[in-house]
Design a protein around this nucleic acid. Structure first.
Lengths: 338, 338
DNA sequence: GGTCACAATACAAACGTTTGCACACTGTCC
DNA sequence: GGACAGTGTGCAAACGTTTGTATTGTGACC
């Protein structure tokens, strides 16, 4: 009764129905010239009628290529990665490649599992944006498939855009507005040494003769609760910083909300800047000052690079649009300056 | 030089290195009892050392099962589906199943392509939340793998929660607040006949002796621009509705923003309610009145149902938490009533 | 009418695993 | 010491496809 117990239709079934050899069926289905048009059409019709679906496992086995690209997404919840995925998907479609996605919940173990699964699936290439595993892990993999990273300049193959410039812009923007006490919200478990935002934060402080104060550094773990705790610490600080540069837009928006519930107004009492420019950042109130990254383009280039590597070519570093400071309503002059 | 041209390590390589037959290697790697512990360990060590990764294509071929579940996600951009995916992933992990995801950009053609890809991959089951293709398409598929839908009660196998109740609650909430002119924002190309929110909208109007006015129906196509256009139409309406029930939270948030830029205040001038209760809805200003759906649980149950069907059992309809009205700050009494 | 070229099709091997069955080896019992 | 379990290992077939090579069939040419 249930339909799914039905046996799969194979090429042999078609061959039998069409009274030809299996090899003729493959060639016909692939549009090979070596088969008579009449035969080809007949076979096509029969395949259609029988509801034939080719078996990728078998094909992969003999062709030693699955036609698949594995995409390891850190966090589906974050709309930041959606744009990247879109770029990847559209570009992949142009080259007849299919994308399979695996979510890692931003956990190292899940990232490993995802990579492993894709290797098992014999993907033609692996795309790993914002990898969490140490580079060491990927180096040791010695995998038979090329891996292209996004935003990891220490990887063998990678597509990256300027990771510091946007943050410098944000910080300088805050300084220009007159802020001198600026807080910084770090992301969850940043890999040591790879914290460009923090770098930019310190650099701009230094440029302006300001001291680095560890009390103004807050750790965001990705949850709303954590933003709430940061707000708590923030309001009890004295002097309270007049501006905060947050890890990403989500944390910035959550922080603004947490401050509002504590009776503080943004940007009147405190300026908040984010990073990523997700779609919603324009829509919240106050609209968020942030940095826009060319995620879509990064995704496209990642696929192109991957394909070049697949063909044994060296990927060319594309000239991507630079990250761009987007000034909106969540930043303003500090209170005292008014 | 490039690492990815290296030949794959196969079971035969291990067999040769360990001086046993390939079959022994498989059995050892699967932890079969029929192989001596010493041999098993030796083989395990060699496999490790050689960096062996099993070939899923080959395994799938002979076992006629890939251990994969295909998940067709309509729109990765929408955080609404992230919760669902999370539920699905955690539950699947419990049963040693891996999830592969494909994004359809909410397009019918892409949905077909995704389903097709998964069939080619020989997935053990297919999960299709909020399918866009007509049910007819799935019925005709006669696929050899079970397909479980989410929120499509007319499908052979499906997991659904009450699709009308929450919308009724929203509408009654607006009525209770005193609203009589209520607008409705439809989703992008709703499949005919499957528009429970619209149903609820009309039902509550009728319950309260209010006329259905087509001028108060707006079409949202998923883009921010579209929300902007709706706002435009809205403000030029006279009388302007005092409340709007929007298709989802994204459209509601975008609409609120568009109204703000036109000098209108929510909920003072206009009440807006959404649907889905995405995480950000709590964080925007004003916080959004909306309906929370048990997406995570739906995802879990979807996997459980799928596995039951795989085993030839009838899935049991779970008792899911009901959708829940969440009243926040974006709805209030109409202006005139103040 | 025999040879030739060429198109269309068939044959068979291969891809990397799994698994039923056969086989070899060990030690135990009569 | 020979039959007998019982355990560990090897052999070979199978999964569904692709593809290099062999084979057949067709017609043209001398």
């Amino acid at each position: 009764m249930s339909s799914f117990v039905r046996k799969r239709v194979t090429i042999k079934d078609i061959a039998q129905a069409a009274d030809v050899a299996p090899s003729t069926v493959t060639r016909a289905l692939q549009g090979s010239v070596r088969v008579r048009p009449a035969t080809r059409e007949r076979i096509g019709a029969i395949a259609q009628e029988l509801g034939y679906v080719p078996n990728r496992a078998a094909r992969t086995l003999v062709k030693r290529s699955s036609g698949l690209i594995g995409l390891v997404i850190p966090d589906m919840t974050n709309p930041f990665f959606a744009a990247l995925a879109r770029g990847i998907e559209t570009e992949a479609a142009k080259h007849d490649m299919r994308i399979v996605i695996n979510d890692t919940l931003a956990q190292e173990s899940a990232e490993r599992a995802a990579v492993r699964l894709f290797l098992e699936l014999d993907v033609d290439g692996l795309l790993v944006p914002m990898a969490r595993c140490p580079q060491d892990y990927y180096d040791k993999l010695a995998s038979p498939v090329p891996i292209v990273h996004v935003n990891r300049p220490d990887a063998r193959y990678h597509v990256s855009c300027d990771r510091v410039g946007g943050s410098l812009d944000i910080m300088r923007h805050l300084i220009e507005l007159g802020h001198r006490q600026i807080g910084f919200v770090r992301g969850p478990t940043p890999p040591p040494g790879r914290e460009p935002k923090m770098q930019a934060y310190r650099q701009v402080l230094m440029e302006n003769g300001l001291d680095y104060n560890p009390d103004l550094i807050f750790a965001f773990d990705g949850t709303i609760k954590s933003a709430d705790r940061i707000a708590d610490r923030l309001v009890h600080l004295s002097p309270m910083p007049s501006a905060v540069f947050a890890w990403n837009d989500i944390s910035a928006i959550a922080l603004i909300h947490a401050l509002h519930t504590r009776g503080l107004s943004v940007p009147k009492d405190l300026s908040i800047a984010g990073h990523d420019d997700i779609e919603l950042s324009r829509l919240v109130n106050p609209a968020l000052t942030t940095v826009a990254w060319p995620m879509y383009e990064l995704g496209q280039h990642a696929v192109r690079s991957l394909l070049r590597v697949t063909q044994g070519l060296e990927p060319q570093q594309p000239d991507l649009p630079k990250p761009k400071l987007v000034v909106r309503a969540s930043t303003g002059s500090p209170k005292a300056a008014r």
